[in-house]
């Protein structure tokens, strides 16, 4: 009987100790946040709930991630006349005012797995530059910074990478495009940026006349073999080389 009593006392003591660990570990607070967070996409409510109740959030988050890629990889639901064989404008992802549910899809991924840093990079990049909704990007970015706050002490962490995205967006809003480009360049040099962000920078380089830099990025994307960008990279490289030769010809004539 004494043995059982000791067993119970030590159990309660340990259970309390685990509870304290949970309460003091900043990360567990993100898990409990689910109790007060509404899942952003009701149509996936059952799948998401299964993930939560069976303790398999990460794999459900991966499925949510694939669903996000499919949503953003497909034609914009708002654009009725885009089809499979449509022109190049439908392939490119620079489509302001479209993919209105993008933020819901990307938030769903990180609600299920708040540590999915890549989803923050991808979501913020797409919202701020491709979909031209920097306000939504900043709102989502704040969620990311809050969730990754525990990495703050490590200067190489994803938290600080996300801070760079924030700075780049503020430069964009303030019209300081050169600083914005430098910020994005640094993000890419760290090696954690999604291919989409690289394509964004290449497009921005092209827009501001830095053709050589743009070619380098598109060549890198071509070498990566990512089917999403191979075709686009080939077209862009050809186009940029023409633009570059024209500029150089013009410069020579001007001299």
């Amino acid at each position: 009987m004494t043995f059982v009593f000791i067993l119970f006392i030590s159990y309660v003591f340990l259970a309390n100790s685990l509870l304290n660990d949970i309460k003091t570990n900043s990360f567990y607070s993100h898990i409990t946040k689910l109790a007060q967070t509404k899942l952003p996409l009701e149509k996936f409510f059952i799948l998401d709930s299964i993930g939560i109740i069976l303790g398999i959030r990460k794999i459900v988050s991966d499925i949510a991630w694939i669903q996000l890629l499919q949503y953003y990889g497909g034609h914009p639901p708002e654009d009725k006349h885009c089809n499979k064989h449509n022109h190049i404008e439908c392939i490119t992802k620079i489509q302001p005012g479209k993919y209105l549910d993008f933020i819901k899809y990307v938030r769903r991924v990180t609600i299920l797995d708040p540590l999915h840093s890549f989803a923050y990079f991808y979501g913020v990049g797409a919202l701020a530059w491709n979909l031209e909704r920097p306000d939504e990007a900043l709102e989502y970015l704040k969620e990311g910074l809050k969730n990754l706050e525990f990495q703050k002490d490590n200067p190489e962490s994803d938290y600080w990478q996300l801070v760079k995205y924030q700075q780049a967006i503020y430069y964009k809003l303030g019209g300081k495009y050169k600083e914005m480009l430098n910020e994005l360049k640094e993000i890419i040099q760290k090696g954690k940026a999604p291919n989409m962000v690289k394509a964004i920078l290449a497009n921005l380089y092209k827009k501001y006349g830095f053709y050589k830099e743009a070619i380098l990025i598109w060549e890198e994307l071509l070498d990566s073999g990512d089917p999403e960008y191979v075709e686009r990279a080939q077209i862009q490289i050809k186009e940029l080389k023409t633009l570059l030769s024209k500029t150089e010809k013009y410069k020579k004539e001007f001299k």
Binding site: L18, L19, G55, I56, D113, F150, Q151, N154
Partner: peptide, 29 residues
């Protein structure tokens, strides 16, 4: 039973988070 405390598979990508996990306490529990 507190399975959430042991549910490291949902967070094992973060070494910062995992470092706060107390294995001895978990085994004893």
């Amino acid at each position: 039973p507190n399975f959430q405390y042991f549910n490291l598979k949902d967070y094992f990508t973060s070494s910062e988070f995992i470092s706060k996990f107390n294995l001895i306490k978990g085994i004893l529990y």
